[in-house]
Amino acid sequence: MNRVALAVLLCASAGLTQEVRGIIEEVQRRTRSNSQRYEGTLEVMDSRRRITTKRWQYERIGSFGESKTVLRFIEPPEVKGVALLVHNHKERSSDQWMWTPALQRDRRIALQDRSTRFFGTDFSFEDLEERDVDHYDYKLLGEERLDGAMCWKIESRPRGSKTSQYTHSHAWVRKDIYVFAKVEGFRDAALVRRILYRGYEQVMGIWTAKELEVYDARRESRTVMRLEKLEYNLPLKEEDFTLQALRRGP
């Protein structure tokens, strides 16, 4: 009797996990595009409320899990030309390189360093990686209303093979349009980082948050990223996402 009950419970649990994973897959499916380009503005506000602003251009080719992205800073003048190339992989963590025009040098950013802040913002390098659903275990924690929209609250835990600075994350996914409304990353019980997604607009059929706010709990600082001139499915070239192209410049 007990065995039967346990089997039913396991099946139900497995079914539920499968269902939660399906939500995440649906989020990714709905935001999938072959390429993307935008200009972003970054505002970093430290604990003393001092604000620094930077602008960048972002381009992506390929879709979730195996995309390649190039990010080039365009403002302020001191950082103009600094670029980051990311090659995402399904089976392993991404490869990242940084180009410094003043030195005419590229440097590889090592796997072990991805928990560090992304160039003084409150994002970490890991936050910029794409998440493969296969690298996480999911659990539905419940449903909550956020900014007037009903959301699923989902917990994700990295599987053994995945290296992450977070022991687990909580994500709030809007039930109406299948997009993230909020993500919180934890190290054990302590909140490490919170990302709020705001200003959702449908761009070329894809619901996209035009404003992201990242909060670093340890430093008590915030970074707001705004997306402008957003375009999807552009005819970008594969050869523009190589180390040679990074060195060559835009």
């Binding site: 430290d46 620094t52 950082v79 360093d113 560090t116 003084g120």
Partner: peptide, 24 residues
């Protein structure tokens, strides 16, 4: 970009390096 995992750069101001990107 990676050294801080090994060395503590305990800065006078919290943001020791006023802008890490400019620093690099």
């Amino acid at each position: 970009t990676g050294d801080r995992s090994l060395r503590e750069y305990d800065l006078e101001d919290e943001d020791v390096i006023d802008d890490p990107l400019i620093f690099l």
